[in-house]
Design a binder for these strands. Structure first.
Lengths: 342, 342
DNA sequence: TTGTACGCGTTATCAT
DNA sequence: ATGATAACGCGTACAA
């Protein structure tokens, strides 16, 4: 049914190869024939079949992004960044959400590998390091994570250092009993660990009651965790959070409990989601440049795909502390949120 | 380099066709041979090449979602809904952001059509109705929009009726001078028009000064529009908005101008983004079930793809008024936001 | 039950 | 400069 090169060739009275030359702008061809063939192409509305091309060339000019949850805090921005760079380089983008299920992650990789995608970007993968190393030997991929994963192409988000910085900031403001509303799944515990490290570095012993972990990253999860935390450790004067969503949940809980922020309790988030500037008090948090992160990941993947041997590379990306109102910092400055557009 | 059916066949001492039968679970085969072949498949780590399959079958088991902006207010949820249903049906999903550029929209469709995707979902397309009609004859597609578009498979979001309902609600609360902070692009003016219609139905003449349109849909755009609106028409006592982002911008402006919400000014949004319940006062808005919308679109596309002739179908999806605090309704109830998870 | 041979639409290698 | 023909990896008549 669709028009093929053969149809064009027949109609133009030339061979298939000549049509191929015209399509691919190859030089060895008379201007006359080229124009004649081009005319037929336009007339018949011929469009090259990329699948047939892929079969021959072995390259699909498609890549895949695997994310746990596209609706997550900055997945959309990340995907946007990847998508931009990908298209600029002539790649189409497959997107797959795995709901944080490691098995589904593997399934999707298999399925898309069968479709001959040229590369993968794994964002916030839940797979263990060893499995990622093996996958990296079978498929070209760039991994974006907070963990350190050996022998892969990785962009590491410095979450650990981020929470270290946040916590240290609170310590400098005079806080000693600092709680953490956190999250954990698989090997990813960077943020809690950064929080712990900062306290220990100052010689403060971390009371286990100060930490409440959840397997969710929603506002509601933060809300529940905060209630539990403030009940079992009422002495705390500051709370660090896994992300802004958790922080917002904490704010709700504080309102219910009558604890004022920042007077009675200092609070900091992580991610600098658009919410941060829209709540009262404005949320102190760590800013992550997600769009840029996506661009970096795609660029790294391009290098991985271009290399003819296994290519490992570790890049690190920091998060910057954005001091607003919720932490009660004296010299509070309030930068304009870059994520403020819906 | 990769293992092919031929390799498996040779190693197992059978023909290619026999391997094919094992792969596709066809019955006419001895259990003995099946197991022997399967063993070789596992041993060699053979994986079928979906590209070659596509070339033969003409079906790619891939579909494409085209959105103006993946980071938009409910694009992620929509994509999530599509993705879920798609995977359940064995489809992989291409995603392409067009930044609202109609030309890029067409380019992406062409590019992905060349890759033989089995269908398209166009979400919030900026293309004119006539062009969409033509595209629908060339490609299987489901279109999600607020407009009415003839002769295509469409899921229409009842934005017009939504703004009608919102505005009527405000009129019932006693407001007469009602403004609109809006957006327009291409043929899509449903929301302003719904607002207008409601006022006119009550016999209120719409003062042009009451309407400020912007080409952006960000908080910042709403902020600017609100300043302009309140300056040129200070008499208004209520504002309807294109979306929640605009409404948040209006809130910022009101704070700067010292106009209290809802006492001095009633305010309503549209979309019921997670923000809505997190700001003070909580935002009255229209809820759109984006995930479900995505599922519907994919299901419609499945019908379009299954049909052997052009298949047109018009579905409509409403938005529900969620009354919170910002509109100053007496009998305010405050449903729990369903979008509250980050 | 199993195998042979051809076709899917394109690119690439050789001739001419 | 152009063309015949063989791949690419798989499915499918049709034959054995």
């Amino acid at each position: 049914m669709p028009v093929t090169m053969r149809d064009v060739a027949a109609r133009a009275g030339v061979s298939i190869k000549t049509v191929s030359r015209v399509i691919n702008n190859q030089p060895e061809i008379l201007d006359g024939t080229r124009q004649r063939v081009q005319a037929v192409i336009d007339e018949l509305g011929y469009r090259p079949n990329a699948v047939a091309r892929s079969l021959v060339s072995g390259r699909s000019h498609s890549i895949a992004i695997i994310v746990p949850d596209i609706t997550g805090p900055f997945s959309p921005e990340f995907v946007f960044g990847v998508d931009n760079t990908a298209r600029a380089e002539g790649y189409s983008v497959f997107l797959a959400s795995t709901r944080g299920d490691p098995e589904e992650e593997v399934e999707q990789i298999e399925r898309l590998a069968a479709k001959q995608v040229d590369g993968f970007i794994l964002y916030g993968t839940r797979l263990p390091a060893e499995q990622l190393r093996i996958l990296s030997t079978h498929h070209r991929m760039s991994i974006v994570a907070s963990r350190k994963i050996p022998e892969v192409a990785l962009i590491r988000l410095r979450s650990y250092e981020g929470l270290q910085e946040i916590t240290t900031h609170l310590i400098r403001l005079g806080h000693r009993a600092i709680g953490h509303v956190g999250w954990s799944a698989g090997e990813d515990r960077e943020r809690v660990d950064g929080y712990r490290a900062a306290l220990m570095a100052t010689g403060i012993e971390v009371d286990p009651r100060w930490i409440v972990l959840s397997s969710q990253r929603s506002v509601e999860a933060g809300h529940l965790s905060a209630h539990k935390l403030l009940q079992q450790a009422p002495e705390i004067t500051a709370i660090t959070c896994f992300n802004d969503a958790h922080a917002l949940g904490v704010m709700q809980a504080c309102e219910e409990l009558g604890r004022r922020i920042p007077q009675d309790l200092a609070l900091v988030g992580f991610d600098d989601t658009p919410f941060a500037t829209l709540v009262k008090p404005k949320l102190t948090t760590m800013r992550v440049l997600s769009v840029e992160l996506g661009q970096m990941a795609m660029q790294q993947l391009l290098r991985v795909m271009a290399a003819d041997k296994p290519y490992h590379e570790h890049l690190e990306v920091g998060a910057t502390l954005v001091i607003r109102e919720s932490c009660g910092a004296q010299n509070a400055t309030a930068p304009i949120g870059i994520n403020s557009s819906l």
